[in-house]
């Protein structure tokens, strides 16, 4: 584009040249704000990522605390068994006392071996 098409263009060129010479400086407050922004952006990059909050409410937190679905399955099975025994009574289960006495009897039988009993009987004779 011709820069001096007319005499009027010469006026414009002079004005443009003056505008370039008098280029505005950056106001101090703006410069400070720009540099503060720069520091803030850099700080964002350097900051560790915040821990993600546990979401999902009480049940999800409980599941995670217990140890996940497998642990929760075992807990549910044990709870159901306890509830069943509570309602039906323990009749179908062996009496623990019987178990104890039965084992005591076994331990107090002196000679449960036939051969040994015969031998001892011979001794008494």
């Amino acid at each position: 584009m011709a820069m001096a098409d007319t005499g009027k263009d010469m006026d414009l060129d002079g004005l443009f040249a003056q505008a370039r010479e008098e280029r505005l400086g950056l106001p101090e407050s703006l410069q400070a704000a720009i540099l503060a922004d720069a520091a803030a952006v850099q700080a964002e990059w350097q900051a560790p990522e915040p821990e993600k909050p546990v979401r999902g409410g009480f049940w999800l937190q409980l599941r995670q605390a217990v140890g996940g679905w497998p642990a929760l399955g075992g807990l549910a099975a044990a709870s159901a068994a306890g509830l069943w025994i509570g309602f039906t009574g323990p009749e179908f289960l062996p009496d623990p006392l019987d178990l104890v006495t039965a084992s005591a009897e076994v331990e107090t039988v002196p000679y449960d071996n036939f051969d040994l009993a015969v031998l001892l009987a011979e001794d008494f004779e």
């Binding site: 280029r23 505005l24 950056l26 106001p27 703006l30 410069q31 540099l35 520091a39 850099q42 350097q46």
Partner: peptide, 19 residues
């Protein structure tokens, strides 16, 4: 992370953007 680079870029480009 170079803070001085921000100052240099601001000095170079800031006045042109503002003007």
């Amino acid at each position: 992370g170079d803070g001085q680079a921000a100052a240099e870029l601001t000095a170079r480009l800031g006045p042109r953007a503002f003007g």
